[in-house]
C-alpha cells in the first residue's frame, strides 16, 4: 500500500520510536554521517549522501562473541532485542538481501545473523541525490521491491510511504494523518557512475588480462574496501579460553580476502599470494562468482570501496577499462 504522510506526522512518528530506545538512524557527526542509536529525533539527518560506513556493523560485527562455554554448558550469545532502522538507503537494504543469500541459506543458517535480522525493522529512505561514487542505477539497486517494512520517499513537503510487510502496515495504521495514494514517487537520481551489464560480462574473458597487475600496483591490501563493503562478510573464528582453561568464549572476527594469509592453509601454502590475485578476486567475487551462484551481483553499487580506499582505487573505472 502507498500513502502520503506529512513531514510533521513522520516527525511525531519518529518521536515515539526514539522513546522506545530501539531506534537507529543516521546522525551527522562532524563531517560524517553515521548510524547511531537515537535518543532524540532532532538528531536524525534526513538529507544526506549515503553514509561512509554502512549498517553492516549491526548485523555482522567486526568482533562478536558467538557463545560462552564452560565444562557443562554452552551459552549462545543471541541478540533478542528489537531494533528499528530508519533512514537506510535502498542500496544498503539490498546489501542485507545479499547477506541473506549468504547467511540464511536453508540448512546452513547463521543463527547469530538470523536473530539480528529477524528482530530488525527496516524503514528505508529513498535517496534524493547520489554521491560521487554511487552507481546503484546501473545495478538496479536504487529502489526497492522487497526487503523493507516501510519505504519513505521525500516529495518535498511530504513523504510517500510504501508498506512492505505486515509490521509496516501495523505501524502505518497508527498514523493519524495519512492518505492512501496512487501517485508514483518522483525519481530524481542523476549524475551517477555508470557500469553496464556488457561491461560486467567482459570479466568472463578478462581473468588472464594484465590489467589486474597494473591496477593493483598501487593497492596496499589494506582491506579498507572489504571492511567497509556492506556485502563483504568473510570472517574467521577463534577460541578464547579463560585462564582456568575450563571456560571461555568463541569469537568471530572480520576477515578480508585482501590479506595474504586469508588463503593460507596448513603447511604454509598461500593460494593467492600475489597482491594482484587478491585484488582481482574481490572484483570477480562481486561481479562473477556470486552471479554464477545466486543469479545477481553481490555488489550493490554503494561506492564505499571507492570512497574508503586510501589509494583512490576506483573499481568502476577499472571495470570500464576492460
Amino acid at each position: 500500500m502507498k500513502y502520503t504522510v506529512s513531514k510533521n506526522e513522520v516527525k511525531n512518528f519518529l518521536d515515539k520510536l526514539s522513546a522506545s530506545g530501539n531506534l537507529i538512524a543516521p546522525v551527522r557527526e562532524n563531517s560524517l554521517v553515521k548510524f547511531k542509536k537515537i535518543a532524540n529525533p532532532d538528531e536524525i539527518e534526513f538529507d544526506y549522501i549515503n553514509s561512509k560506513y554502512s549498517i553492516k556493523k549491526y548485523f555482522l560485527l567486526d568482533k562478536e562473541v558467538l557463545f560462552e562455554y564452560d565444562k557443562d554448558s554452552i551459552k549462545e550469545n543471541i541478540e533478542e532485542k528489537q531494533r528499528i532502522f530508519f533512514g537506510i538507503r535502498p542500496c544498503d537494504v539490498h546489501s542485507l538481501l545479499v547477506m541473506d543469500k549468504l547467511l540464511l541459506e536453508e540448512g546452513m543458517e547463521d543463527i547469530y545473523y538470523k536473530n539480528k535480522r529477524k528482530n530488525s525493522l527496516i524503514f528505508a529512505l529513498k535517496c534524493s541525490k547520489s554521491g560521487e561514487n554511487c552507481f546503484c542505477r546501473s545495478l538496479g539497486t536504487d529502489d526497492l521491491k522487497e526487503g523493507y517494512d516501510l519505504l519513505f520517499y521525500d516529495e518535498g513537503n511530504y513523504y510517500i510511504v510504501k508498506t512492505g510487510s505486515e509490521k509496516g502496515d501495523n505501524f502505518i495504521s497508527k498514523l493519524e494523518e495519512k492518505q492512501e495514494t496512487e501517485d508514483e514517487p518522483s525519481d530524481p537520481l542523476e549524475n551517477q557512475k555508470k557500469l553496464s551489464q556488457d561491461q560486467i560480462e567482459k570479466l568472463r574473458e578478462s581473468f588472464n588480462s594484465d590489467i589486474w597487475k597494473k591496477e593493483s600496483a598501487i593497492c596496499f591490501s589494506c582491506a579498507g574496501c572489504t571492511t567497509t563493503c556492506p556485502t563483504c562478510g568473510c570472517f574467521d573464528v577463534k577460541d578464547d579460553p579463560d585462564l582456568d582453561f575450563e571456560s571461555g568464549k568463541r569469537i568471530r572476527l572480520d576477515a578480508s580476502c585482501q590479506l595474504k594469509n586469508y588463503t593460507g592453509v596448513a603447511g604454509g601454502h598461500v593460494f593467492r599470494d600475489e597482491r594482484s590475485k587478491r585484488f582481482k578476486h574481490r572484483i570477480y567475487h562481486k561481479f562473477k562468482y556470486f552471479v554464477d551462484q545466486y543469479g545477481s551481483e553481490m555488489c550493490i553499487g554503494c561506492g564505499r570501496c571507492i570512497t574508503n580506499c586510501p589509494a583512490n582505487i576506483d573499481m568502476v573505472k577499472i571495470l570500464n577499462k576492460l
Binding site: L32, K52, Y53, F220, A223, G224, T227, D254, L259, P310
Partner: peptide
C-alpha cells in the same frame, strides 16, 4: 592476523588521514 592498521581504523569509522591531506603509516 597480519592485518594493516587501516582495517581497524575502518572499524572505528574514522576519516582517513590521507583524505584529510595528512600522512599515515597505517597501510604499511
Amino acid at each position: 592476523k597480519h592485518n594493516p592498521v587501516c582495517m581497524e581504523c575502518r572499524y572505528n569509522e574514522n576519516v582517513c588521514q590521507f583524505q584529510k591531506k595528512g600522512k599515515c603509516l597505517g597501510p604499511l
